[in-house]
Each structure stands twice: as structure tokens, then as C-alpha cells.
Amino acid sequence: MEKENVIVTNELTKRFGYFTAVDKISFAVQKGEIFGFIGANGAGKTTAMRMLCGLSLPTSGTATVAGFDVYKQNEQIKKNIGYMSQKFSLYEDLTIRENIRFYAGIYGLEDRRIREKTALLLQQLHMEDQQGTLVRALPLGWKQKLAFSIAIVHDPAIVFLDEPTGGVDPITRREFWSLIYEAAARGITIFVTTHYMDEAEYCDRVSIMVDGRIDALDKPASLMQQYNSASMDGVFLQLARKATRTEDLIE
């Protein structure tokens, strides 16, 4: 049986003046899929992701996220997605527990549910003893794991992860990915960007953006076969080398 699609885009485009940041991208992401969104700096990833999160209005084309239209229903979209990036994550001067409570509160969870969720989350992350610790005092890897768990505290249909593991040590990076797998197994769709090419291989499918277009989209194994490369790194280098954009626009 065909699984339901949670993200569908058709010729989605974003122009800034004469500059086409995102150029007619069309793709679909299935429920529970781990979807890798790869591209060089300036290829248009962030712009595309912003449109899907309902933060930026497309110039043309269509897209639905969790069944909602990105043009008209961006408020509903925001309720049904989670978002985490390397830069924006948690309030450093609040404790672990306070951060969880705050974000759960934003998404309108009931008090009883917040309590349950907080207990569950602390247990999953083995942070029960540290729940009163200020986030500032945590190692980066812990922060990122906590930020991810908080991003999905309201059980969103999709979670967008923008370079979630930058600078994290290799062991914690893998622990982070086990959290991603667990969330995907629960039916949460994962939409992730990364500069680590081995992480691209953990994804179910990977799309590679070049100059605002999606130049390749397939399972990592198929891409490696197609481009005759032993790793995703090789695939990416072959594709990104074709870029003609002089990467002179900041996203």
C-alpha cells in the first residue's frame, strides 16, 4: 500500500528580485520517512525549508505540509511541525525542565500532558538527575539531543532539522541519530539538512540541491550506484561541482 505523503511540492519557486533562490522544486516525502536535504552553501536549502515551515511565502508553485497549504494555512502548518537548528535551540538561562515546560506550553499541551511528557522525555534522555541544571552548563551534544526531543514534544507530523549535529562529537552524533530513528519509527517524518555526508547515508532518501534545483533524489545506495561512487561524499562532490551560481547571495 502506498504510504501517505506529508510533504508534497510542485514546481515550488522563490525569487528575490532577479535572483531565483529556489527553482521549481517538486518532490514528495512520505510519513515516517527520514528525508535528507543536502546542498552546498547558497544552493537554496534554507530558503526552501523556510517556505515549507510557513515562514516565507513562495513566489510560485504549490506545496502542502501535513496536508496544509503553504500559502494560506501557515498557522496550521506551524502547529503541526517541529523545528530545530544548530543556532536556535534552547534558552541557556533556563533549566532543562523549564525549557521542556516552556516549549510544551507554547504548543498548548495540557498541564497533565506536559507533566507526563516531561517525565518521559527526561527518562529517555537519562537526564532525570540533571533536570534542574541550567542548559548553559550542558555539553553541546546533550543540548542538541534535548533540543531535538523538545522539538517533537508535541508529536508533530514533521520535524525540520537544520544541521542539527554540527560540532558534536562522533559518539553523541550517533546517539542523536538513534533518537531520529526512534522518532521516525513512531511515525514522525524527519526532514534533515547536514554537512556530514555519512549522515546523508543514514537517510531513507536524499535530495541534492544545486543552484536552487533538485538535481538528484533517491535512496543513498541507488545514488551511489548511479554516480558510481563508494560514498555520498563522492556523489555530492560530482553534483555540486556543476554549480554555476557564484554563491554570492546570503540566505
Binding site: 546542498g39 552546498a40 552553501n41 544552493a43 544548530q86 544541521e163 554540527g166 560540532g167 554537512h195 555526508m197 561524499d233 555530492f236 562532490l237 555540486a240 561541482r241 554549480a243
Partner: peptide, 10 residues
């Protein structure tokens, strides 16, 4: 090279 894509890193 932190936060820089694979091509620029190379």
C-alpha cells in the same frame, strides 16, 4: 571549515 559545505571544504 565549520558550517561550510563539502565542496568549499575540499
Amino acid at each position: 571549515t565549520t558550517g561550510v559545505d563539502a565542496v568549499s571544504r575540499k
